[in-house]
């Protein structure tokens, strides 16, 4: 069976959905970051698949930008987790609830 663009897009949709559901369901910030990474990499697959399909280099260029920005986002996110765990023993998104209303 030949792998067509559609297969890559299906993979990308699946990864994106897993990431999105995981981000909404899981409560550990580190796991939530991983879910964000899944979503962003789903975007990368989709860009590359479309780029190959269209025979256009734009999709691959986009991936470089997404990769760099994803790395930057995670650095900031981990810094936030460190700041929180310094103040309290564990980092659980449900316990972070001083602010309500």
């Amino acid at each position: 069976m030949e792998l067509t663009t559609t297969w890559y897009l299906v993979l990308s949709v699946l990864m994106f959905s897993i990431g999105a559901v995981g981000l909404l369901v899981r409560r550990n910030p580190l796991v939530m970051f991983m879910c964000v990474e899944l979503m962003l990499n789903a975007v990368n697959i989709s860009f590359v698949a479309f780029g190959a399909d269209l025979n256009d280099v734009g999709g691959q260029i986009s991936v470089f930008f997404v990769l760099v920005v994803a790395a930057v986002e995670v650095v900031v996110g981990l810094a936030l987790v460190v700041a929180i765990t310094r103040r309290r023993s564990d980092a659980n998104a449900d316990d972070i609830s001083v602010l309500r209303g």
């Binding site: 975007v43 479309f50 399909d53 936030l80």
Partner: peptide, 21 residues
Amino acid sequence: YYLMGVFASAIMLYGMSLLYG
């Protein structure tokens, strides 16, 4: 802010990849 922000930019990026496609 961070979690909502990165979630939103991931959704937006996926939209952009679809538009590109």
